[in-house]
């Protein structure tokens, strides 16, 4: 039986192998396209914008003369907006995740919340801009401010924080929870003394990934009416006189890095495109750095924590 099939079988197998090799090679090429695009993108930006990355670029305000223009107001604005974003998304996201993972009963309200979280993750970011424009800017009267931008981006990255926190909580084995309950801990004690600390690595990872998305996000911030030409800095936080003083920075007009880049990119003069490229390098380095930290943190948790 084997003998009669032998030679014919071998040709068939050889043909199968050939196909396997072809498809495998195509797959490898496709995958490297991703890697190549990333490199190309980065190299292109660096070639275009490298010469503008001087200390002055970080310390100057935008200007009509491209060679004097800088990103001082933009990076300060980005930093302050990120503070508000983090303060919005982290408590809300972590609390929501704890509820969904540890408290929520199986009923239609929980189901509704779950569907909403997955859906929000896929809502286009510009829609968050429209929400903020209608709600925060006009109905709540918060204006075109740092606070509005921070809240908007905070809501936008909320699903990322929730999903990451839930995954981190889910990775903790039931045995740990039972051990704590067996010692007489209440549900909240189990959560606050055990689950949140043990899940903190995964939570940080999610928060960093969320913030890295927020820092590069342009569309919603444009929609709420961030100004593109800001030649002043917001008040230094927590320095003014109470009651309003310490927080007046929240209501300051502002710009952020991606908007500054967009503004320069929209100018016809190529000299401004160089500035845009330089700003792009700053943004991409910031996001890649944050993503890199998150990926590294996650792999470290995975290798360290083996339940």
């Amino acid at each position: 039986m084997a003998e009669t099939q032998g030679p014919r079988l071998r040709t068939i197998i050889a043909r199968n192998h050939r196909w396997d090799l072809i498809i495998g090679t195509i797959g490898l090429l496709a995958t490297t396209v991703g890697v190549l695009v990333l490199m190309l993108l980065f190299v292109d930006l660096v070639i275009d914008g490298w010469q503008r990355l001087t200390p002055d670029f970080f310390l100057n305000f935008p200007s009509r003369r491209p060679e004097e223009a800088g990103i001082l107001s933009a990076w300060v604005g980005s930093a302050l907006v990120m503070v508000v974003t983090a303060f919005t998304a982290v408590p809300l996201g972590v609390a929501a995740a704890i509820y969904l993972e540890e408290y929520a009963p199986k009923n239609w309200i929980t189901e509704l919340i779950e569907i909403n979280v997955t859906n929000l993750a896929a809502v286009p970011s510009i829609i968050y801009g429209l929400l903020a424009l209608g709600l925060f800017v006009y109905i709540l009267g918060l204006g075109h401010s740092i606070l509005t931008a921070g809240l908007t981006l905070g809501l936008m990255i909320l699903p990322i924080v929730i999903v990451a926190t839930r995954e981190a909580l889910r990775a903790i084995p039931v045995a740990i929870r039972e051990a704590a309950y067996a010692l007489g801990a209440t549900r909240w004690q189990v959560v606050s003394d055990h689950l949140v600390p043990y899940a903190s690595g995964g939570i940080y990872t999610g928060v960093i990934i969320g913030l890295s998305r927020a820092i590069g996000e342009t569309a919603p911030v444009i929609t709420i009416g961030a100004l593109t030409f800001i030649a002043f800095l917001p008040p230094i936080p927590f320095t003014g006189d109470p009651p309003a003083g310490p927080f007046d920075w929240l209501f300051s007009p502002f710009t952020v890095l991606p908007i500054q880049m967009f503004n320069w990119l929209s100018r016809p003069q190529t000299a401004f495109h160089v500035n845009a490229a330089a700003t792009g390098i700053v943004i991409i380095v910031a996001t890649l750095l944050m993503n890199g930290i998150a990926i590294w943190l996650r792999s470290r948790i995975r290798s360290k924590l083996k339940w």
Partner: peptide, 15 residues
């Protein structure tokens, strides 16, 4: 690939 997904869209716009 994850890093590629993390690149802000404004940078892709420039590209």
């Amino acid at each position: 690939l994850e890093l590629l997904a993390g690149v802000p869209t404004i940078v892709y716009g420039y590209f």
